[in-house]
Design a protein around this nucleic acid. Structure first.
Lengths: 258, 258
DNA sequence: CGCATGTTTGAGGTGCATCAAGGAAGGTGG
DNA sequence: CCACCTTCCTTGATGCACCTCAAACATGCG
């Protein structure tokens, strides 16, 4: 999918352009089987999705766009716990009890919602679906592991670099200028809450990266990575994220300094 | 299981005493079906288990004891990403690629290892197993979410309180003195790496909690929570952890100040 | 234009890390 | 049984990375 072969909807929404299909069974292969049981939600920027439906557990499958799972523990500040990209699967039970958990859309996109029991039934019958779900959950867990390492061990610049690498890999499109362009989901406060930083500190780091020539911003909420290799070098998690994303343009970017 | 009704092995190893069965299908119910396909590993304190076997993906099911999953990203310090308690399930693909990941036993215990493909096959045939695995993974993810919030938002005292609550809930036994006793897995450095803190800082916090009368230490590597309610009050994640653990003695502890 | 919301940047404070010295616990050989 | 060593834990002094507060600066909208 490195060039062409994207649906009009994807092109319009600016996702999936540079991100090749995930490993394992592609979502497309299981879409047909799931489609009849799932309700399709079209999201807008900032829209919140209720995690638990009236009764029973729910599963969400991201088709297009970026979502954030945020959690607020009592007497604590909010933490954006995970960013969800196309292909990701979320169960409502992934959020801990006794916590205020919210699913927020970063942009216009598409999410499939399905009762978990129904999904379980489908998985029992269709090995492809089961494999897809298992792989999606495993990938989600691996990303969560990286996030834990990010929050626990990285300094603020490494955290920001990690986020930018993550976004470039998942939602980035190569720009005419030679860099990688992508939308910054949410505002500074939300991003800071994802990285466990202060918004002021985040702003400072971004400015520093701009001065260093690694990134630039055409408009607000949009970023251009000018030197992906230099950026990746500042994130200890870059290699892991690159291998997990399976994005093909990375190869080229890593060998061509800008 | 608040009193008696524990196997000799559990009593000897000091686990599972106060922790009632997890929700959903108990591990015992699926043990028979898995037993013939899994190899049983007996762990010693500090023993490391290879995550990926020679070929193919592996799953681990913790029966007795505590394990830690630790990850070291390139050019970064080690992060203990998760503590695994009896009933927990770990797939080798939960660890990100391009990272040095290790599974370490905190104490003598028992772990079942099984090829993931075999486990998948069993799950497809046996709904009870599938349900158990799904629930175990969902619970693991919820704990990972809490850990992210802990690393991202809590101050150092809240982090330590959270760990102590977690350990008390999962491995604690009520002591004659009225408190809750449990082993401290690993040494200070390892615990600090789990909480994203410096060992020196951790030691200071522990001393502070001792002075405040919340905990005491009979021997090294062993802790007694003297006032569980006060400790829980210092951890924003306590309510979530309590509800997830399903430990029954908590009810009593929460209503009796010491 | 004028207001609301979000971002940037500076000045100053603080929580935690770092460094270093001392102390307890456990193991080993005499 | 006691010196001795190694390992781990504790605790004080100091410094820095990041947070906090506040003011100026952008951006969008009625």
């Amino acid at each position: 999918m490195a060039s062409g072969a994207k649906t009009p909807a994807e092109a319009q929404l600016g996702t999936g352009a540079l991100c090749s299909a995930s490993k394992g069974p592609a979502l497309a292969a299981v879409a047909a089987a799931l489609g009849s049981h799932a309700s399709i939600l079209h999201t807008r920027r900032g829209q919140t999705l209720a995690l638990a439906s009236d009764r029973g557990e729910t599963a969400f499958i991201v088709r297009i766009g970026v979502l954030a799972l945020q959690v607020t523990l009592p007497d604590s500040a909010r933490q954006v716990v995970a960013l969800l990209f196309p292909g990701d699967v979320l169960r409502s039970s992934f959020a801990p009890p006794q916590a205020q958990a919210t699913l927020v859309a970063a942009a216009a996109g598409e999410v499939w919602r399905i009762r978990f029991t129904a999904l379980e039934t489908l998985a029992a019958v269709n090995p492809t679906i089961m494999r897809y779900l298992d792989d999606a959950v495993a990938g989600r867990m691996a990303r969560q592991v990286i996030h834990a390492a990010t929050l626990g061990q990285f300094d603020c610049e490494q955290r920001v670099a990690t986020l930018l690498v993550e976004l470039a890999l998942h939602t980035g499109m190569s720009s005419p200028g030679g860099g990688v362009v992508f939308d910054l989901p949410f505002n500074r406060k939300d991003i800071a809450d994802y990285l466990g930083l202060n918004p002021d500190t985040l702003s400072r780091i971004m400015s520093r990266l701009k001065v260093a020539g690694l990134i630039s911003q055409s408009e607000r909420n949009r970023a251009v990575v000018r030197d992906f290799r230099a950026l990746a070098a500042r994130s200890p998690a870059a290699r892991s994220l690159i291998e997990m994303s399976g994005a093909r343009w990375v190869e080229a970017s890593l060998h061509t300094a800008v």
